[in-house]
């Protein structure tokens, strides 16, 4: 009697600990999602059959790679343009600040899809340029720019006035201040929000299909119209985006924790 009751207690103890454990809860949550996917897949009119992908691997890979290429370009573009915009908002010139302000409002008010279309089909042609991908990509860059500018603002603000006073008092030269104190701090703090915006860009880049750029969304659509394997295409498309963005967000969280200075 005594033995069995203590054994029972032990069992309960371990079960409760397992239920509380993070790993287990993740396994449950992810299984739920996979279960849902399976349910959805099984409910399609024609059974899902991934072997229909055969022969189209390189097309889809091309889309996958192009998505990453345009996203990386847009990331760096908006990192640079965002910094310029940040400098404008900090400028002594009222005109520059107002320009930054007005542009920000206009960009905030524009859906990304509209921004891409306007850039590629309206503004580009106004400059006699029909290089749609360049204009559309600029559209994404411009769309993200105010968000990047905000990132810079909050990061630079987090270096306190007293820290600057301390640097002055010790007699750091301007170059030394940036090189040893400001930039090393700023870089750490910029990284996680940059990565978050990168994820936004990757997701937004799917909209480039409206200008027939051969990114992931577009190449999968091509595959679908050629094979009529619509369900397979959508499922694959979804999984491929998640395969990039979820690890990216995990990495972001890791970097955030690892580099936190708070």
């Amino acid at each position: 009697m005594v033995w069995s009751s203590s054994l029972k207690n032990k069992c309960f103890f371990y079960m409760r600990r397992m239920l509380k454990s993070k790993t287990l809860s993740y396994i449950i949550a992810i299984s739920l999602f996979i279960g849902f996917l399976v349910f959805v897949a099984l409910r399609q009119r024609t059974p899902i059959n991934f072997s229909r992908l055969a022969g189209y691997e390189s097309l889809i890979l091309e889309g996958f790679i192009n998505t990453i290429i345009v996203s990386v370009i847009a990331l760096f573009g908006s990192i640079i343009l965002g910094f310029i915009m940040y400098l404008m908002t900090k400028s002594k010139s009222q005109t520059l600040r107002t320009i930054a302000d007005v542009f920000t409002e206009i960009i905030y008010g524009t859906p990304l899809l509209v921004m891409i279309i306007v850039m590629a089909f309206l503004i580009g042609p106004a400059f006699n340029s029909f290089n749609r991908i360049v204009w559309a990509l600029s559209g994404i860059i411009i769309y993200i720019t105010p968000y990047m500018s905000n990132v810079y603002r909050s990061v630079f603000k987090s270096i306190s006035d007293e820290q600057y006073m301390a640097m002055d008092l010790f007699g750091f030269t301007a170059t030394q201040k940036y090189r040893y104190i400001i930039i090393p701090q700023v870089l750490r703090m910029l990284m996680p929000p940059f990565m978050n915006n990168f994820s936004l860009i990757i997701k937004g880049s799917a909209l480039l299909n409206v200008i027939s750029h051969r990114e992931l969304f577009f190449t999968i659509s091509l595959f679908q119209t050629r094979t009529f394997a619509y369900s397979e295409g959508y499922l694959l498309m979804w999984l491929l985006y998640i395969m990039i963005t979820v690890p990216l967000s995990q990495l972001t969280k890791y970097v955030e924790r690892r580099w936190s200075l708070e």
Partner: peptide, 8 residues
């Protein structure tokens, strides 16, 4: 008033 150590 508050420490001004360089946090990195």
């Amino acid at each position: 008033q508050s420490h001004t150590l360089f946090p990195h």
